[in-house]
């Protein structure tokens, strides 16, 4: 059984065909990149996979389970966590709390447990806090545990957001433009981080990225979208030579006078 299987996924927004006939199969352990010009539908693909939008057609199977009709938190609970293109941390909660609350799905206690401080509550809180502490340490953020995310440097906010996704112990990690807005130094750190996370957490990673330096150096497989359609897939080397991809990014080589 494959980790993630997407069959003929299509999504319309009114008359706009945002994603058309998208197919994908991840067996687990891959590091896949999704690229494409602006507005190609990359983030829509992520929004569909994470359950934020419902596909107009086609199906998404996560470990053989159809995610149709599941709400986003349930899809996340199945074992796939994501980050956002524009950082979406909870800014009035501390860095530590950010890493705790993201484990909400696995809390397993309710209102009365918090009021009565039951055994389930104590155990669960302890487990959640331990996971958060460990993540803070491995990501080198321990120093900022009590800080608010908005006070962190940009690169660390990204790191924290990735950490927040990892706190769910996902099998599949979706990263939406992790390098967006980063300076070259931060980009190098990020490349290191992605490689390290993959090794350390044994997680399958699927990322959207504009930054070619990141995509070409990190990804093993790349898929290219344009106007919602898949126009190419393969290894970075193959993608670099793919005619349709070059066309989509740079336009036609032929002069246009005969058009």
């Amino acid at each position: 059984m494959s980790l993630l299987e997407i069959r003929n996924m299509t999504r319309f927004f009114g008359g706009l065909r945002a994603v058309y006939d998208f197919n994908l199969r991840l067996e687990g352990g891959e590091l896949l990149g999704l690229i494409g010009p602006n507005g190609a539908g990359k983030t829509t693909v992520f929004n569909l996979v994470s359950g934020f939008y419902e596909p107009s057609d086609g199906e998404i199977l996560f470990e053989g389970k159809n995610t149709a009709g599941l709400r986003p938190h349930q899809v996340t609970g199945l074992g796939m966590a994501r980050t956002f293109q524009n950082i979406r941390l909870w800014n009035s909660l501390t860095v530590f709390d950010n890493l705790c609350i993201s484990q909400h799905y696995h809390l397993g206690y309710g209102l009365w447990d918090t009021v009565l401080k039951t055994h389930a509550y104590r155990q669960s809180e302890q487990r959640v806090k331990k996971t958060a502490d460990r993540l803070l340490e491995t990501l080198g953020l321990s120093h900022y545990a009590r800080e608010y995310p908005k006070n962190l440097p940009y690169g660390l906010q990204r790191r924290l957001e990735i950490g927040r996704a990892l706190s769910l112990q996902p099998k599949l990690l979706l990263l939406d433009e992790p390098a967006a807005g980063m300076n070259p130094g931060e980009v190098e750190d990020l490349i290191e981080l992605i490689r390290w996370i993959r090794k350390e957490f044994k997680v399958t990673i699927w990322l959207i990225e504009h930054h070619m330096r990141v995509v070409m150096s990190v990804c093993e497989q790349i898929k290219v979208l344009d106007f919602g359609e898949t126009i190419g897939e393969g290894t970075p080397e193959q993608i670099k030579k793919n005619r349709r991809v070059i066309q989509a990014y740079l336009g036609d080589e032929e002069p246009i006078h005969d058009a």
Binding site: F52, H73, G77, W90, Q103, H106
Partner: peptide, 11 residues
């Protein structure tokens, strides 16, 4: 703080 992030982060 961010309802969409909360829902996607399993709340």
């Amino acid at each position: 703080d961010d309802e969409i992030a909360a829902e996607i982060m399993s709340v």
